[in-house]
Design a binder for these strands. Structure first.
Lengths: 235, 235
DNA sequence: ATAAAAAAATGTTTTATAACACATTATCCC
DNA sequence: GGGATAATGTGTTATAAAACATTTTTTTAT
């Protein structure tokens, strides 16, 4: 990972006009910058674990991260897929709790941590930014509730189709306009979709034989988006 | 419903020292009060429907309310049970979206609606209160994520046991120290626990025959809390 | 390059739970 | 009060998906 990338990793979160922090004064930004750390996590490394104490607001500058919980008998459920320029672990931070899930880098990732105390000092004087963070959390709560219903009520095909669409939504498509810009293991795909790995593999093959998608190792291309959406909606 | 109750319904939310609005100035409270409506909903009445536009922050002064979503084939999933002195529908309000679920009064209920514009005007100048609301939402997001895992991974017994414990947690026990202070239909219990009504009935009977609970119509008493917790934890 | 380990693929069996069918009991309401 | 309607209870069947078993392919390490 080029050192330069690391240096500018934090830049977006503080200075980009699209960032929720852009309304801050130069002084406040300086204060946040003085209390931040940037870190590189290699593919497969844990960023935080269930039970860890949050040290600040983690901003994902680069890479892909899965947030997951351990369920019955250690079975993993992926709660969320994080993408660049998003926040990680802010739920626990704002609930004043330890992390209720773990985060793992699915690719080499750069994160930028805005230290807790400095952040809250600034939030206490900036309701606008606090409201913007609140909006993000409200969005996420809506997604979580919807996901609960999908994961419990849809059948395997619907759940897997929904996950593929979620990945497209989160990470987009490659230049060819049909390949999902995310290369997950079948196991991760299964843990995202609440099914066994075997069933994820099987159902992917079925989708491929139905020409909904094409498969090439971990590379998944959407051949028929409309039909895939229909499969996702049908349950 | 006594009129007096209606008049004082809003009182807690604005004036009680435990309320998140207590830090407001008298003037701000007056402003909120001038822009509020109190309403009584009879048992079975809809408070809002999926797709409706939020008009303000709904505070439940009295009663019991279920928040639910329609899933595959109209199948209902109860997302949350609201109890007095809690907020309803604030997720959509802060996400700037229409309601993504519906709310229905399970008993005669009094709600107090703080009008949107007046509320936001005040929140913009009070990061402390905004942070307090954010904490509530962060708590709820944690619960939602945990629930997703429980509802997808636990078996029927575990899911039902968890729901019973959730009801105890939310509404408490009667004076006898063992009867759940909430009298849901088997169908609601099923929709809370992600199972069919038949299975809710069957599993309740099994719990009763195992002396975990006792049943008397809708009255459910916990006979062995420890064992019930164990059933919930085992999945 | 080859062994070892991990991931993917596929067929078979088992099981949890939904779906269905029907009986019984409460509750509503004219 | 009695008919209608909704809620509860119970047995049976069907099925989706997990569990299990085994093979093949890919990746990683030595």
């Amino acid at each position: 990972m080029a050192l330069k990338n690391l240096e500018v990793a934090c830049d977006y979160f503080l200075n980009d006009p699209d960032s929720i922090f852009s309304p801050l004064s130069e002084e406040e930004k300086k204060d946040l910058f003085a209390n931040h750390v940037c870190t590189v996590y290699k593919k497969g490394e844990i960023i935080f674990k269930e039970g860890d104490k949050p040290t600040g607001l983690i901003c994902l500058a680069n890479g892909k991260v899965k947030i997951f919980k351990e369920g019955v008998g250690g079975r993993e459920q992926i709660v969320r897929m994080a993408s660049p320029l998003g926040f990680i672990g802010y739920r626990a931070l704002f609930a004043g709790q330890n992390y209720s899930g773990s985060a793992l880098a699915l690719e080499d990732s750069i994160v930028c941590i805005l230290e807790k105390e400095a952040l809250f000092k600034i939030l206490k004087n900036n309701a606008e930014i606090t409201l913007a963070l609140m909006k993000k959390m409200a969005d996420e709560l809506g997604i979580s509730n919807t996901r609960t219903v999908s994961l419990t009520q849809k059948h395997i095909r619907g759940r897997l189709a929904e996950s593929l669409l979620l990945l497209v939504d989160t990470y987009g498509l490659e230049e060819d306009g049909r390949t999902i810009r995310a290369y997950l293991s079948r196991e991760d795909l299964a843990n995202l979709s609440n099914m066994t790995t075997s069933n994820a593999i099987r159902t992917l093959s079925t989708f491929a034989s139905e020409k909904l998608i094409s498969l090439e190792g971990r590379k998944i291309s959407i051949l028929d988006m409309k039909k895939l959406e229909r499969v996702s909606d049908m349950g």
